[in-house]
Design a protein around this nucleic acid. Structure first.
Length: 956
RNA sequence: GCCAGAGUGACGAAAUUGGUAUACGUACUCGACUCAAAAUCGAGCGUCGAAAGACAUGAGGGUUCGACUCCCUCCUCUGGCACCA
């Protein structure tokens, strides 16, 4: 009996199944289950007033697909959702409208919840959390108190980044180009007492433990850069006055003999200590004042022109030579990095060089280039000794043009200048002149320059078969005319000469010691910042930078140290809509934590949310809230009125999901043991240095005090690319190019939107939205729908369909794991194109196809599945398995090439030998046509791929 | 400046242990159906060329029987960092 065909109706199908799934708690995660667990996580959204956007959907669909696949594979899956509800936009909305943030948050979360539900995500809705719920932030406060107890939370007066518009202190991470991350206003510096979290104490582990997790490489790199680990030395310089030395941090201890001055940051404590001994005190004070008055922006907008003043009347001593060394202060040295002081080596550091040029300070070279052959023909042979050679390397300049003579060796691909050993009784110039005449024949020569910087190279000499350690002495020779005598025929056989223009020569000499030789002659003033070989460094001369770093640090009485760019986390915000920091200040006792039994410290209702210009939060105005008794001595005390940044609640929310209703702990030990760590976490790249780093820090702290079972919170972290507006620009409310998902869901259906977002392009790349292209996804779903009417129990399964089905099972499975959703969808489209051509489609084949499709478009597949007579949900079916043997085609197409160009193809069974394929290929008329008058020189055969016939013209 | 990522038809894109470049989708053209249109279905669709063929993956070189894929130099775009010693 044939069923009447009805058109695909997304509205009724989607709402029908959403209700069924909700009524049956289809996606509830079980705390007790024999199945292996899988915890998949998306970043919980901030419920803004503008509702869900396309970017949320991209990440959510991806993790929904993975969660659904894992359920089908037999896992007990936790895929939770909640709200990161504290934050400035809600507070600013409250200021504008007078609607309380609690009320606004409720409205917004209602909207988000409704929108998320219409998209059919398989969240376990029973575990919803909300960071602004006192039952939740009680535990945020509690964790803060544990950090306080361990000395990780402290109050510190410091210059903070102050946004005058938002009236709020910002963490370094929230300042972009000197502007407020949220509103774009110029950030000012303000001195304020702030709560700080000592994330720097975890810097080393946050860096090192990245080796233990499976994050996208670019995420690791970005975190590492942000943490900014740097290994170097601390070395002390004695000073002509007082007991205290200048301690500098450097990564280039090997350049210690090149130090010509030292620099202190303007804020350095020694500057004020020496005040009375400085003879140009006024000048120094003026400079420090001028630095302070300038904002960060002024400092960068001046084109980074270096400024600074010499400290007169005091000098330092070189730690090894005891030479007198001038002391400067300059703001290119940062107080907050390293020791706030540097040893300046202008010959080998760009900044020091620029500074020294400007103030005419001495530049002393102590490093010469050293190149080591690492790959290719000149790679150093490990087990062979080095033969040292003194060599003249001669750059010959044309008599008229800006061109230089290069030598091309016929027997290798080596290109360079004229070089030749310096004989025992010969000086460099004589050797250079002799070599040029011998090798090139030019006779009208004049030595123009001999560089005082040698270039060293270790390499394998192919002709002599030995490791060489060559010391090149660069010499520049000008030709006065083109006069040339005959070159010895032996020389000619080895190499040719060629004139190369100045702008092309760098490309030709890339990665070659010859390039350094040229630089040494034509731009010797450029600082050499690479590692190399030491000179002018007493007993250390001749050492490589690597060896010298340690040796010189020891000789100077210094020590090897590690420093980080990462700074402690500014944890105070002077706003209303955040977790109150649970601290009380008593005049007698100082800062006292709120007793744990009194948690949560709840936000009081206020009439005005407007922050004050004084920088205090609106909470400061609520005297009945602020004024309390000291928990220790019972005298009058005041609450801390700062609140936490919204990164606080999101630093541990994934732990709460495991046990969201626990009243006695942030989560029960058994639940944490069962569910954590998160197996797969997908989110935006913008959170790499903020949320992701902060939450790793909190997690490590909780691990250290024995409250979570693992040192790392997330096993695997991936990232989706941004969805841009049509035309490739960012979506933004102000431009008005934001796509409203509600409309798409209404008109096209949630399945279409989900499918389109997966099909639109590579998941990890940014991609422009295209409303035109959505129809392709919609049509595909309609064709799936229509094809289901052709399903029949009696339909035969051809071998072509069978092999294609198994290939698709393999491809879709692999592509989901690698998040190549676009190609997974395309392979499903290809399969459907084939099925559509069949008279009838086998039920088994079509049901497998539906199962592969189900994670992408859960509603319509569920409907068809049930139409086909199935009683259980398609989403609880076992994930299809493929048979490797069935993925192999019975006939394959081999490309037939002639001289590397594909001329035709030949159909043949897989696994055939070269002889058979060659014979078959040569029988093809199109090929024999090409073979006429040609000799077969060689055949290249790649099994089951190509056959390439190499021919040349018959010569007889 | 430094660190990532990207550059392929009209458009979104596919193909990388080197092996038939442009799969899949969109747009477009033609045809079928229709009084007509939409929808749907079928055919075509890199450039030049009548064809044979030649040329095409940001540019230029190189390695190779063969290069989107590997090497070198360079350009453009996106994101991040930026006086970090």
């Amino acid at each position: 009996m044939k069923k009447p065909q009805v058109p695909y109706n997304h509205l009724s199908i989607e709402s029908k199944w959403q209700k069924v799934w909700e009524d049956t708690s289809a996606y509830k995660a079980l705390d007790n289950s024999d199945k292996p667990k899988f915890y998949s996580l998306i970043e919980f959204p901030f419920p803004s007033g503008s509702g869900l956007h396309t970017g949320h959907i991209r990440s959510n669909v991806a993790m929904d697909i993975i969660s659904r696949k894992r359920r089908s594979e037999g896992y007990n899956v936790l895929f939770p959702i909640g709200w990161d509800a504290f934050g400035l936009p809600t507070e600013n909305y409250a200021i504008k409208t007078g609607i309380h943030p609690i009320e606004a948050t409720k409205q917004n979360t209602d909207t988000f919840r409704r929108q998320l539900k219409t998209l059919g995500f398989s969240f376990d809705w029973s575990r919803e959390v909300n960071t602004s719920d006192p039952e939740y932030y009680k535990w945020t406060q509690w964790i803060f108190l544990q950090m306080y107890k361990k000395g990780l939370a402290y109050k510190h007066k410091m210059a903070i980044n102050w946004c005058p518009k938002d009236k709020i202190g910002l963490a370094n991470e929230e300042v972009i180009d000197g502007k407020c991350e949220r509103c774009g206003t110029q950030v000012e510096k303000r001195e304020k007492e702030q709560w700080m979290l000592a994330i720097t104490k975890y810097a080393d582990r946050l860096d090192k433990d990245l080796d233990t997790v499976d994050y996208l490489e670019r995420i690791k790199i970005q975190q590492r850069n942000w943490i900014g680990k740097s290994e170097g030395s601390e070395i002390e310089f004695k000073v002509s006055v007082g007991e205290k030395n200048i301690n500098v941090f450097t990564t280039r201890a090997d350049t210690l003999f090149g130090v010509t001055y030292v620099v202190l940051s303007p804020e350095h404590s020694l500057v004020s200590e020496w005040k009375e001994k400085i003879t140009n005190k006024k000048e120094i004070e003026d400079y420090i004042a001028s630095v302070k008055s300038r904002t960060e922006i002024d400092r960068t907008s001046e084109g980074k022109e270096k400024t600074g003043v010499e400290l007169k009347g005091i000098h330092a001593f070189h730690p090894i030579t005891n030479e007198e060394i001038p002391i400067w202060i300059a703001d290119y040295v940062l107080a907050s990095y390293g020791t706030g002081a540097v040893m300046a080596v202008p010959a080998h550091d760009e900044r020091d060089n620029e500074f020294a040029q400007k103030f005419n300070l001495r530049i002393k070279e102590v490093i010469e280039p050293l190149l080591i052959g690492e790959r290719g023909a000149d790679a150093v042979k490990e087990d062979q000794p080095f033969i040292e050679r003194q060599v003249a390397a001669v750059v010959v300049k044309h008599w008229e043009k800006e061109e230089y003579l290069v030598i091309k060796w016929t027997k290798s691909d080596w290109v360079g200048f004229v070089t030749g050993g310096i004989d025992k009784n010969e000086d460099v110039a004589t050797a250079a002149l002799r070599e040029v005449e011998e090798e090139t024949g030019y006779t009208d020569l004049e030595v123009a320059n001999i560089a005082d910087r040698k270039v060293h190279a270790k390499f394998y000499q192919l002709l002599k078969k030995e490791n060489r350690f060559a010391h090149y002495q660069p010499v520049l020779i000008h030709l006065k005319s083109g006069a040339r005598k005959e070159v010895d025929s032996g020389e000619l056989a080895i190499h040719t000469t060629e004139w190369i223009s100045k702008d092309k020569i760098e490309a030709i000499l890339a990665g070659n010691s010859m390039r350094h030789i040229l630089w040494s002659l034509i731009q010797p003033e450029k600082p050499l910042t690479d590692d190399g070989l030491l000179k002018n460094s007493d007993v250390f001369s001749g050492m490589s930078s690597d060896e010298a770093r340690k040796a010189i640090t020891e000789a100077a009485g210094g020590k090897m140290v590690t420093t980080f760019k990462l700074r402690d986390w500014i944890f105070s915000r002077q706003r209303y809509w955040g977790e109150p920091i649970p601290m009380i200040h008593c005049k007698k006792c100082g800062w006292i934590p709120v007793p744990e039994k009194d948690l949560p410290v709840t936000l009081p209702l206020v009439a005005k949310y407007q922050p004050t210009d004084s920088g205090e939060s609106p909470l400061a105005a609520i005297s009945e809230w602020v004024n309390v008794k000291c928990p220790t001595c019972d005298s009058d005390a005041k609450r801390e009125t700062d609140t936490m940044p919204n990164w606080a609640g999101s630093s541990w929310y994934f732990l709460r999901y495991t046990d969201p209703h626990n009243k006695n702990a942030f989560a029960g030990v058994d639940k944490l043991n069962h569910w954590t760590p998160v197996d797969w976490y997908n989110g935006g790249m913008e959170h790499t240095t903020l949320h992701l780093l902060y939450s790793r820090f909190w997690h490590k702290f909780l691990f250290d005090i024995g409250l979570v079972p693992t040192a790392e919170p997330y096993k695997k972290r991936t990232s989706h690319g941004l969805i841009l507006a049509e035309g490739g620009v960012k979506m933004s409310k102000s431009i008005g190019n934001v796509i409203n998902p509600d409309e798409i869901v209404e008109n096209m259906g949630a399945d279409t939107l989900r499918l389109y977002e997966m099909f639109m392009g590579p998941f990890d790349q940014p991609i422009p939205w295209s409303t035109d292209n959505i129809v392709g996804s919609r049509r595909f779903i309609e064709r799936v729908w229509n094809t289901h009417y052709k399903v029949s129990n009696e339909a035969q399964v051809g071998s072509k369909v069978e092999s294609m089905l198994h290939k698709t099972i393999m491809k879709v499975g692999e592509d989901i794991e690698s998040m190549s959703f676009n190609t997974a969808v395309s392979s499903l489209m290809i399969l459907l194109n084939t099925l559509e051509k069949e008279e009838a489609v086998s039920k088994e084949v079509f049901e497998t196809f539906l199962k592969l499709l189900a994670p992408f478009i859960p509603h319509v597949t569920e409907e068809i599945w049930s139409e086909l007579g199935n009683k259980e949900s398609i989403h609880s079916q076992r994930w299809p398995q493929y048979d490797k043997l069935k993925t192999i085609d019975s006939v394959i197409t081999i490309a037939v090439q002639i001289n590397g160009k594909t001329r035709t193809t030949v159909e043949i069974e897989p696994g055939n030998t070269e002889e058979i394929v060659t014979k078959k290929a040569l029988e093809i008329p199109e090929i024999s046509k090409w073979m006429e008058g040609k000799n077969v020189r060689r055949i290249v055969f790649v099994k089951d791929k190509i056959i390439n016939i190499i021919v040349d013209l018959k010569t007889e």
